[in-house]
Nucleic acid binder design. Structure first.
Lengths: 253, 253
DNA sequence: CGTGAAGTTGAGTATGCTCAACGGTGGTGG
DNA sequence: CCACCACCGTTGAGCATACTCAACTTCACG
C-alpha cells in the first residue's frame, strides 16, 4: 500500500477528486439534503455559515481512492451522495472491507492522526471534506457537535460488533441475508424505498465485506434466487420476496 | 437470553455484584491505579470528588453477568481489575465474543439506551459503575471528558476493524498469533511485562472471540508449541519465544 | 460486433468443524 | 485422606462448508 498525502492525490493521477459544481459551492451546507444524518445535524441554520467556511466539496469516480491506511489523517469526510468502501489489507493482499458508506455517513475519525483503513469510491460519489484542525476548533465552540460525533461513533461501534458476529459465526447464506437486509434498512433510513434493494458494489467487494470469495457470493445469490426468496433484476437491483425468511437466516435460526 | 434490570441481579442470585471493601469506598477515585487509562483521565485531582459522588464500585466472580444484550443501558462501567468479556448471540446459541476488557477499559456505551451486547466476568473483577444520567450531567460540565470519551470510542472502532480483518480473512494460525500479540501489547500498555502472556480466558472463550471452535484453538496452540514459537506454562501463561514469526503470521505474510 | 471485465457454474480440494474418546485437575464429600 | 466427579483441554477420525482453479456466459462499451 502506498502512503501518500491526500493533498497530492490529484497530481498523482490515480484519483481525480475535483471541486463540485458551482451550484453546490454557493451554499453547500444550506442546500445539503442529508444534513440531518451528518455531523452537522445539531447546528442551527445561522451557524451553517461557519461550516461553509471550513468545508470543501469533493467528487470521486468509481475506483478512485479517497485515502490510504497509514496516511496522516488531515481530514474527515461526510458522504453526500454515492457509495464509498473502507477496507484493510493483509501482507499478501487479502482484503477485508469493513464498511460501505452512503449519503450521510461519516468517515475519517482517526485516533492517532493516522488513518487506520483505506477508503475508495464504489460508485460515483460526492463528499464534504472537513479539515481536521479547523473542525477541532469548531468542535471546541459547539459541544453539541462533539456530542453528535460521539453518538455517531458509538453507533458505528454497535454496527462493527454486529459485523463481527456475522464474520465469526454466520454461514454464507446467513451472511448474505444479513447483508441484503442491512442495505434495505439503510435505504429506508434515508427515506427511500427498501425494496427492491440497490446493490451498487460488485461480487468481489461483497465477498471481501462478508469474509467470502466472489464465487461463494455468486452461488449463494443463486441459491436464494432458486428458493424464491429474492430475484436479481437489472442494474444491481435485488428484489426481496420473502423478508421474513431472510430475517430468520440473518438472526441464525 | 433473559433481559433483566441490572439493579435486580443480586436478588435473582445468578450474579453477586457486591460493594467493594470500605478501603476503596473512602476515596475510590483518588486511589484509582488505572485512572490515566479511563474516562477519568482528563479530570484534575480536585474534580475527582465530583466523580466520587456518582460512581459506585462493583465486584464480580468468574461467570457473573454484568448486563445482557437488550437490557436498558442505565450505567456505563470502567474495569479496574480482572477481565470481562462482551459478546453477542445468534438465535441458536452461536456466540461471538466481541472483546475482552481489562483494567482501564470502558464498556456500556449504548447508542439507543439499550445494551447492544452482553457482558460477563472472565476472572474475578472489579469495576466502577457510572449511572448514565448522572454521568451525562458531568459530561455537560466537563467537555474534556466528552472529548476523552470520543477518543476512547474511536480507538475502540479501530480495534473493531482490526478484529473484522482477523475474523474475515485470517487463518486459524494467524488468528491465534494476532490474539497472543494483542494480549501481550495490552499488558505492556498497562506497564506490565509483555512476556510471558497471561491468558486468563478458556479455550471456548478464545474460540468464540476468534471465530473458531475450542478444538481448533487447542490444535493451533499445539502447532505453535511444536514449532517452538511459544510454550504453554502453568496458570494460563504463554511464553513467546519467537515474536517475529508471530508478527509475520499476524500480518498475513 | 468484438473485446474485456464481471458474474456464474462445475469439479476437486482443504481448512476447520463435528463427534467422540481420553487425560489431567481441582473441588467435594464420604 | 482419598475416591469421585465435573470440567477443561487435547487428540483423533471423518466430514462439510467454503475455497481454488478453470471454463463458460453475460453484459457494458467501444
Amino acid at each position: 500500500m502506498s502512503t501518500f498525502d491526500i493533498k497530492t492525490i490529484g497530481a498523482i493521477g490515480a484519483a481525480r477528486p475535483r471541486p463540485a459544481g458551482s451550484d453546490a459551492d454557493a451554499s453547500p451546507c444550506g442546500a445539503c439534503t442529508v444534513r440531518h444524518l451528518t455531523i452537522c445535524a445539531p447546528l442551527e441554520d445561522h451557524e451553517l455559515s461557519e461550516m461553509n467556511r471550513i468545508v470543501s466539496s469533493l467528487e470521486l469516480d468509481p475506483g478512485d481512492p479517497l485515502f490510504d491506511e497509514g496516511e496522516p489523517a488531515n481530514a474527515v469526510y461526510n458522504v453526500t451522495a454515492g457509495a464509498i468502501k473502507v477496507y484493510k489489507l493483509l501482507g499478501d493482499g487479502r482484503r477485508q472491507v469493513t464498511g460501505f458508506l452512503f449519503a450521510g455517513d461519516f468517515l475519517g475519525l482517526a485516533n492517532d492522526d493516522i488513518y487506520a483503513y483505506s477508503a475508495e469510491a464504489v460508485t460515483h460519489a460526492t463528499l464534504c471534506r472537513f479539515q481536521r484542525r479547523k473542525l477541532e476548533v469548531l468542535l471546541e465552540r459547539y459541544p453539541r457537535m462533539e456530542k453528535r460525533l460521539l453518538g455517531m461513533a458509538s453507533h458505528e461501534l454497535a454496527v462493527a460488533q454486529e459485523q463481527m458476529l456475522l464474520l465469526g459465526r454466520k454461514t454464507a447464506k446467513e451472511k448474505l441475508a444479513s447483508f441484503l437486509l442491512n442495505l434495505s434498512k439503510r435505504l429506508v433510513q434515508r427515506g427511500q424505498k427498501g425494496n427492491p434493494v440497490s446493490v451498487p458494489m460488485n461480487r468481489t467487494d461483497i465477498g471481501d465485506y462478508l469474509g467470502l470469495t466472489t464465487e461463494t457470493v455468486s452461488r449463494t445469490f443463486t441459491q436464494l434466487r432458486q428458493s424464491g426468496i429474492i430475484s436479481l433484476n437489472n442494474g444491481g437491483k435485488v428484489e426481496i420476496h420473502d423478508r421474513d425468511v431472510l430475517e430468520e437466516f440473518a438472526q441464525g435460526f
